[in-house]
Computed example of a mutant assay.
Amino acid sequence: MFYYVAKVAITAVLVVLISEISKRSSFFGAVLASVPLTSVLAMIWLYIDTGDNGKVSELAGSVFWLVLPSLALFIALPILLAKGVNFYLGLAVSVAITALCYWLMVTLLHHYGVEL
C-alpha cells in the first residue's frame, strides 16, 4: 500500500510543482511540462511493477504515436483564447478536438497495421 501512495504522491508533487513554477515563469513551467515526466514516471512504475522491458517498450512506442494528436490541444487552445473564447469553453473545445485527433490517429494506425 505504501508503494501506491508513494507513486501518487510523487506524481502529484510534480504536477503541483509545474503549476507553481508556471505562475512565476511560463517559460520554465512550459519546459517542465513539455518534458514527458508523466510518461517517464509511467515507464518507471511499469518496469518496477513488471520488470518487463517489452511492456515498457510497447508503452514508449504507443506514447510516441499518441503524442502527435495530443499536440492539437496546444494549437487549438491558444487560438481559441486569442479569439476571446471563454477559458473553460475553449478548453472543452480543445479537448474535444484532441479526442477527435486521437480517434483519427488510432484509426489511421490501425488501417496501416499498427496496433497500440
Rank of each mutant, 00 (worst) to 15 (best):
17 L>S: 05
96 A>G: 05
83 K>D: 09
24 R>S: 12
11 T>Q: 05
69 P>I: 03
54 G>E: 13
9 A>I: 10
28 F>K: 06
107 T>F: 04
13 V>R: 03
46 L>M: 14
17 L>P: 01
91 L>S: 15
56 V>L: 00
66 L>D: 04
17 L>C: 11
42 A>G: 10
20 E>D: 09
44 I>V: 14
55 K>L: 13
5 V>D: 03
48 I>R: 14
71 L>P: 09
97 I>K: 10
55 K>D: 07
59 L>V: 10
75 I>L: 07
52 D>S: 14
21 I>V: 15
18 I>F: 01
31 V>M: 09
24 R>E: 15
77 L>P: 05
61 G>D: 15
26 S>Q: 11
44 I>R: 01
73 L>Y: 12
1 M>A: 11
93 V>Y: 01
17 L>F: 11
5 V>H: 06
60 A>T: 03
17 L>H: 01
43 M>W: 07
82 A>F: 11
109 L>R: 10
57 S>P: 00
104 L>W: 00
70 S>V: 07
106 V>P: 10
55 K>I: 02
7 K>R: 13
101 C>D: 02
84 G>S: 13
81 L>W: 00
80 L>N: 01
113 G>P: 06
86 N>R: 12
98 T>S: 11
43 M>V: 13
93 V>L: 15
97 I>Q: 06
34 S>V: 04
2 F>R: 05
70 S>H: 10
88 Y>P: 03
65 W>V: 14
90 G>Y: 01
79 I>Q: 06
86 N>F: 13
102 Y>R: 15
7 K>D: 02
13 V>C: 09
8 V>F: 05
39 S>C: 02
87 F>G: 04
86 N>I: 09
70 S>E: 08
36 P>R: 00
10 I>P: 13
43 M>Y: 11
77 L>Y: 12
16 V>W: 00
86 N>W: 04
42 A>V: 11
57 S>I: 11
82 A>P: 02
44 I>D: 03
29 G>E: 13
109 L>N: 12
26 S>H: 10
28 F>R: 09
2 F>W: 09
87 F>Q: 03
92 A>C: 11
70 S>Q: 13
77 L>D: 06
79 I>W: 05
98 T>C: 14
